[in-house]
Amino acid sequence: MNQAFPLLPEQASAQAGEVDALFFFIVAVTVFFTIGISLVILFFAVKYRRRSDEDRPREIHGSLWLELVWTIIPLGIVILMFAWGSKVFFQMNRPPDDAMNVSVVGKRWMWKVQQPTGQREINELHVPVGRAVKLTITSEDVIHSFFVPAFRIKKDAVPGRYNVAWFRATKVGTYHLFCAEYCGTEHSKMIGRVVVMEPEDYQTWLAGGPPPESPVVAGEQLFTELNCITCHRPDSAGRGPVLNGIFGRGVKLASGDTVVADEAYVHESILNPATKVVAGYQPVMPTYQGLVTEEQLIALIAYIKSLQIPSGETVPVPEEAE
């Protein structure tokens, strides 16, 4: 990164090598065809240069055989590229289960990051080397895009939505974090850095600042403060569905559809509770739009995610509430 005149970006994540391999394969195809065809054209242009104005070259209409050849060969090449690219893309979009969760909120013009243990950072992200990091990305205003060239990852931060990206840093160092989607005046200043540290250093760094409040704890506090607890009681006696163990499961809705209770659904249910009401319940929940910030929402979601099924009980998922 401190090189004065680099020609290729650093490879600092597990994905970077995969993306580069694919990239150089396409570069090879590109260079081969560009140079090959250019040389043929130059060769023809010189060899068949008009000698006299009376030249009347013999007519050639075309050749079906040739047309088929130069349709099918490129088709084969692009199918290969497509398959390879899709494989890499799926990996990029499938965070491993053991990934640590980091939440990212874009705001004009800064990146607000929160560690799984609750430490907040602005325009910086500290991560341990070798550990998978799952990013849950959203925005408070316009569309931004979280871009770390050294990791070859990029994901838009879209207001009202949670997008997911992940990486596993492989090299200790400091890397650029850019906003890649134009977001207004200070777009080019919305840059930060990702600091990849040895796990021990990362632990030391975590211990450094003031003792953080973990998002789960903050979420639990909010859950009480906002009186969510009065309806969403863990003993299924409240007016709202029980939330223990609900996260990640299918939920049957009053409309007959089933949705997975993921981040987006919980987010929507807090802000627009009447949109997708769980089967067997009345749409009585008020909206919390304007009452909770994006960061508080993330804390609430973290808390709901953490709610386990009390041992010894049957699963009180709402599917059975009918």
Partner: peptide
């Protein structure tokens, strides 16, 4: 869109 790739 909701066909998630992520397991929980």
């Amino acid at each position: 869109r909701s066909w998630s790739l992520t397991g929980y």
